[in-house]
């Protein structure tokens, strides 16, 4: 299996995801430059967290037009696995690979803390190693994670079981997102965006001391291994 982590100008969690894939999971992992037009031979593409282009217009809005996004959109349409974490999720929304949009957190402040989440759907390439309805913990760190989608869109997400992760309840929802949504996938299940950072909780040594993020990556690896490395359509 081969994974690629994209570096946009202003990405700052690219090295963190790289570290987890490469050093914790021993996956063949490469950094992908945002100007690359060619991405061949990957089983997984990760759009990492950070502040691409300073997030100056809207989070992810400018990165969406980086050269590398065309082949990534193509890769996703062919069934390749794409994981967008935090700013990566915002880029996936801006590029319409996932539905909805992001607003600033309802308390207007950047928030960095551990959150409790519920796994809503564990029948996906990204959560197959998680227990359904399990409460898991992952940290968030963002200023614009207030997910929004209109009524019909929400209905559709629910009907297609596209909501994968929710903050456990309104009280622990760190940003005011609609229906406590923390992570969603596309209808085809191969593109997953989430605000929490699984790469920050894949080793028990580092704070916050939990390792529930590990299961997200092991789900992906297990899915790809089962699929036999080929992109399925």
């Amino acid at each position: 299996m081969k994974a690629g982590v994209v570096t946009f100008p202003g990405s700052n969690c690219d090295a963190d995801v790289f570290h987890v894939l490469k050093n914790i999971f021993n996956i063949d992992t490469k950094m992908i430059w945002y100007k690359d037009k060619n991405i061949k031979g990957y089983d997984l593409i990760v759009l990492p967290g950070g502040f691409s282009y300073g997030d100056y217009l809207r989070s992810g809005a400018i990165a969406r037009f980086a050269k590398v996004m065309d082949p990534i959109i193509d890769f996703a349409e062919k069934g390749g696995l794409v994981l967008g974490i935090c700013n990566g999720f915002q880029i996936l929304l801006e590029s319409n690979l996932l539905p909805g949009a992001m607003k600033v957190n309802d308390n207007l402040k950047f928030v960095c803390k551990n959150t409790v989440l519920t796994v809503i759907n564990n029948k996906t390439p990204f959560t197959n190693q998680c227990e359904k309805s399990a409460a898991i913990e992952m940290p968030v760190a963002h200023g614009e994670g207030n997910y929004y989608i209109d009524k019909e869109g929400l209905k559709e997400l629910n009907e297609n079981n596209q909501i994968i992760l929710k903050y456990k309840n309104k009280k622990v929802n760190p940003n005011g997102s609609i229906n406590n949504i923390a992570g969603i996938c596309n209808k085809e299940r191969n593109v997953f965006g989430l605000m929490p950072h699984p790469e920050r909780c894949s080793e028990p040594l580092i704070t916050p001391g939990k390792s529930d993020g590990y299961n997200i990556f092991s789900s992906i690896i297990s899915f790809i291994n089962k699929r036999g490395g080929k992109i399925a359509k």
Binding site: H19, F110, C112, R200, L205, I206, T207, P208
Partner: peptide, 27 residues
């Protein structure tokens, strides 16, 4: 204060804010 700071990015923070001293691992 510190929940407004990203104290985890770079994934080296072994002990974060709110302690006597912060502890940062060397990968």
């Amino acid at each position: 204060v510190y929940e407004q700071y990203d104290y985890m990015v770079m994934t080296n923070t072994v002990v974060g804010p709110g302690s006597d001293a912060a502890v940062i691992r060397i990968k």
